[in-house]
């Protein structure tokens, strides 16, 4: 099953490589991994999207907790949560595509953030599956370039990951 794991770790040099190294050394999947400092500059927050059986996810959580720099780990799937990913898509904006891309962007609540002679760049946020759906919905031949941040996740309501 797909799981979104959030963790807080000491904002130290090499911290990211410890997590990435753990996943590759133990053969765990990483669908995406995002990391940035939090409002507390000594802490980084990471969101990892992975897939695995319950046993594998249990091991992943335990192994992450075992890393000395990791302060807290939360499997967002254990409760209600929100997930968001940002995608920038550069699409052809010539001929029929010109209106079509504007229309599709609107439907998916995207924003055109750059307009060039022959292309638009569309900014889109949403769950990973929504972004996938957008790419499915538009004509493949119109896609010039995509870049995605990977998912960030947060628990709903009182579910707070903080030290």
């Amino acid at each position: 099953m797909r799981h979104i794991i959030s963790l807080l770790m000491e904002n130290e040099a090499g911290a990211l490589s410890r997590v990435a190294g753990l996943f590759s050394a133990r053969g765990y999947n990483i669908e995406s991994l995002t990391v940035a400092a939090t409002e507390d500059a000594t802490l980084s927050r990471m969101t990892i999207v992975t897939t695995g059986s319950d046993d594998v996810i249990e091991q992943i959580i335990k192994q992450l907790n075992k890393l000395i720099d990791v302060v807290k780990v939360l499997d967002l799937n254990d409760g209600k949560h929100i997930e968001r990913e940002l995608m920038l898509v550069k699409v052809k904006a010539t001929g029929v595509f010109k209106d079509e891309m504007k229309r599709m962007s609107d439907i998916f609540r995207g924003r055109i953030i750059d307009v060039a002679d022959n292309s638009y760049t569309i900014e889109l946020t949403g769950s990973c599956s929504k972004l996938d759906a957008f790419l499915e919905a538009i004509d493949r031949s119109a896609i010039l370039e995509t870049v995605r941040t990977g998912a960030s996740g947060i628990g709903r309501g009182d579910r707070i990951l903080k030290v």
Partner: peptide
């Protein structure tokens, strides 16, 4: 050294 030993230490420091 920190990179080389990462998978076989409990922890390491530079």
């Amino acid at each position: 050294m920190v990179g080389v030993t990462r998978p076989c230490v409990k922890h390491n420091f530079l």
